[in-house]
C-alpha cells in the first residue's frame, strides 16, 4: 500500500511538472512580464524599489566584464537573467515544455514503432523476422549516444528546404529510433509466445485475416509489456534529450530545452550558478518521479518483470 502511495505521489509530481511547464507562456506574460526568447541586454528591472540594469557592468573577480543580474526571488527575474538578459525562470519553464514534448513524444513513437515491428517480426517469422531482428541487432551494437550523435550531426548538416534545423521533430525522431531495439526485443519474444496460444489458433480457424490476428488477438496481450516500459522510457528519453542538447546537437536555438539552458549556464557557472542548476533540478525531479512511477506501474501490472531501464 505504501508503495502505491509513493507511486501516486510521483505521478502527481510529474503531472504538476507537466502543467507548470505547459503554463510557460502564461508565466512569461503575466508573472515575469518578459519574452524569454528575445535578448534584453540594455533592459532594467526593479529590485527593492531601485531600478537596476539587467546586465551589470563590472562583474567578475577583476571587476571587469559584464554579468547578468542574479536571482531577485521576485516575479521579474525570479532566477535572474542569462548572458542575453533573458528571464531564466521563464526559460526553464519553456525549456521544460520542449524537453517534455521531446521526451514523451519520442518515447511514444519509439514504443509504437517497436510494437508494430515486433508484431510483424513475431507474426510472420522466417525471413521477415530475420531481417528485422538483424537490423535491430545492428542498431543495438551502437552505443546509444554515439548513434544519436551520428544521426543528429548528419541531420544538422543537411541542407534541405523541408528540414528546419530548429524543429523539435529532429531530436524526437532520433531519440525514438535509437531506443527502438530496447523495446522491440522483449515485445518480439512475447509475440512469438502469444502467437502459439489456443485463442490465436481458434481465431485462425475461424478464418481471421492476418491483420485481425495481429491487432485484435495478439496486440492486446503484449501491450502491457509496452505500457510497463513507457514511464521508464520517458525518463530515459528525457535524459537523452538533455544530453544531446547539452552537446549542442539536440534542440537548436532559438528554441530552448533544459539541456540547452544547462549548456548556456556553463559559461556563467561560477558567477550565476542558478542558470545551470535550476534546469538540472527540474530534470532530476522529472526523471525521479518517472522512475518511481515506472517501478510502481511494473509492480502493479507485471510483478515478475525483470526488465529495468536506465538513463
Amino acid at each position: 500500500m505504501l508503495r502505491n502511495r509513493i507511486a501516486l505521489a510521483a505521478l502527481a509530481l510529474f503531472i504538476l511538472i507537466v502543467i507548470v511547464s505547459f503554463g510557460a507562456p502564461i508565466y512569461a506574460r503575466d508573472i515575469a512580464h518578459a519574452d524569454p526568447f528575445s535578448s534584453n541586454i540594455s533592459g532594467t528591472t526593479t529590485v527593492n524599489g531601485k531600478t537596476v540594469q539587467v546586465i551589470q557592468q563590472g562583474g567578475g573577480a577583476l571587476g571587469l566584464g559584464e554579468i547578468p543580474i542574479g536571482p531577485t526571488w521576485t516575479s521579474r527575474y525570479f532566477l535572474g537573467a542569462d548572458s542575453q538578459g533573458r528571464d531564466v525562470a521563464a526559460r526553464v519553464l519553456y525549456g521544460g515544455r520542449a524537453s517534455l514534448e521531446i521526451g514523451i513524444g519520442s518515447a511514444v513513437i519509439c514504443c509504437i514503432a517497436a510494437l508494430i515491428l515486433a508484431l510483424i517480426a513475431g507474426f510472420y517469422r522466417r525471413w521477415v523476422d530475420s531481417i528485422l531482428s538483424r537490423l535491430m541487432d545492428l542498431i543495438w551494437a551502437f552505443p546509444v549516444y554515439l548513434l544519436a550523435i551520428s544521426l543528429a550531426t548528419v541531420l544538422l548538416t543537411l541542407q534541405h528546404p523541408f528540414i528546419n534545423p530548429s524543429s523539435l521533430w529532429i531530436p524526437t525522431i532520433i531519440i525514438a529510433v535509437v531506443y527502438v531495439p530496447y523495446v522491440y526485443r522483449p515485445v518480439r519474444g512475447q509475440v512469438l509466445s502469444v502467437r502459439e496460444k489456443e485463442y490465436v489458433e481458434a481465431a485462425t480457424s475461424q478464418g481471421a485475416s492476418n491483420f485481425r490476428l495481429m491487432f485484435n488477438e495478439i496486440l492486446p496481450n503484449v501491450v502491457t509489456t509496452v505500457i510497463v516500459m513507457l514511464p521508464l522510457m520517458i525518463a530515459t528519453t528525457i535524459l537523452t534529450e538533455s544530453a544531446l542538447s547539452f552537446l549542442s546537437i539536440g534542440v537548436q536555438p532559438p528554441k530552448a530545452s533544459w539541456g540547452t539552458i544547462i549548456d548556456d549556464g556553463q559559461a556563467l557557472l561560477y558567477t550565476r550558478p542558478w542558470v545551470a542548476i535550476a534546469p538540472g533540478i527540474m530534470i532530476v525531479l522529472t526523471v525521479l518521479s518517472l522512475n518511481i512511477l515506472g517501478d510502481g506501474v511494473r509492480d502493479a501490472l507485471d510483478p515478475r518483470a525483470k526488465l529495468r531501464m536506465k538513463g
Binding site: S242, I262, I283, V284, N291, K310, G311
Partner: peptide
C-alpha cells in the same frame, strides 16, 4: 540514476 551526469559534473 535520475541525475544527468553532465549536470552533476557542473555542480
Amino acid at each position: 540514476i535520475s541525475m544527468p551526469v553532465f549536470w552533476l559534473g557542473e555542480v
